[in-house]
Amino acid sequence: MQIINRRANAYVTWSLLAITVAVFLLETISGGSQNLLTLIHFGAKTNYLVQEGQWWRLITPIFLHIGIFHILMNGFTLLYVGQILEPMIGHWRFLIVYMLSGIMGNLASFAFGANNAISAGASTSLFGMFAAFLSLAIIYRENRFLTELGKSFLGLIVINLLMDLTMSGIDIWGHIGGAVGGLLLGYALGLPNISRPKMIFRILAIVVVVAISYYMYAKGMIVYG
Rank of each mutant, 00 (worst) to 15 (best):
residue 1 M to F: 13
residue 4 I to L: 15
residue 5 N to Q: 02
residue 11 Y to G: 12
residue 12 V to S: 13
residue 17 L to D: 12
residue 18 A to Q: 06
residue 22 A to M: 15
residue 26 L to W: 00
residue 28 T to P: 09
residue 32 G to P: 03
residue 35 N to C: 14
residue 36 L to M: 13
residue 37 L to I: 01
residue 37 L to S: 12
residue 39 L to I: 07
residue 39 L to F: 09
residue 40 I to V: 04
residue 43 G to V: 00
residue 45 K to L: 12
residue 45 K to N: 14
residue 48 Y to M: 12
residue 52 E to R: 09
residue 54 Q to H: 09
residue 59 I to W: 06
residue 61 P to E: 00
residue 70 H to W: 07
residue 71 I to Y: 07
residue 76 F to K: 08
residue 78 L to V: 10
residue 79 L to S: 10
residue 79 L to N: 03
residue 80 Y to N: 05
residue 84 I to H: 11
residue 85 L to E: 01
residue 86 E to D: 02
residue 87 P to A: 00
residue 88 M to P: 09
residue 89 I to E: 07
residue 92 W to D: 07
residue 92 W to K: 01
residue 93 R to T: 01
residue 96 I to R: 07
residue 99 M to G: 02
residue 100 L to C: 07
residue 102 G to M: 04
residue 103 I to D: 11
residue 106 N to H: 09
residue 112 F to Q: 05
residue 114 A to Q: 08
residue 116 N to V: 00
residue 116 N to L: 03
residue 118 I to P: 08
residue 120 A to M: 07
residue 121 G to L: 04
residue 125 S to D: 04
residue 125 S to G: 05
residue 128 G to F: 01
residue 128 G to D: 06
residue 130 F to V: 00
residue 131 A to L: 06
residue 131 A to D: 03
residue 131 A to W: 02
residue 136 L to E: 11
residue 140 Y to K: 15
residue 140 Y to A: 08
residue 147 T to K: 09
residue 148 E to G: 13
residue 148 E to S: 10
residue 148 E to F: 12
residue 149 L to S: 03
residue 149 L to F: 15
residue 149 L to K: 00
residue 153 F to V: 02
residue 155 G to L: 02
residue 158 V to G: 11
residue 158 V to T: 05
residue 160 N to K: 02
residue 160 N to P: 02
residue 162 L to V: 15
residue 164 D to R: 02
residue 164 D to M: 06
residue 165 L to F: 03
residue 166 T to L: 14
residue 167 M to C: 02
residue 167 M to N: 08
residue 171 D to R: 13
residue 171 D to V: 05
residue 173 W to M: 07
residue 179 A to S: 10
residue 182 G to D: 03
residue 184 L to E: 01
residue 185 L to I: 15
residue 188 A to Y: 07
residue 189 L to R: 01
residue 191 L to I: 07
residue 191 L to N: 04
residue 192 P to T: 08
residue 195 S to D: 04
residue 198 K to A: 05
residue 199 M to F: 08
residue 204 L to T: 03
residue 204 L to W: 05
residue 209 V to L: 11
residue 210 V to D: 10
residue 211 A to Y: 13
residue 213 S to M: 11
residue 214 Y to S: 13
residue 214 Y to F: 14
residue 214 Y to L: 15
residue 218 A to T: 06
residue 219 K to N: 12
residue 221 M to K: 08
residue 224 Y to L: 09
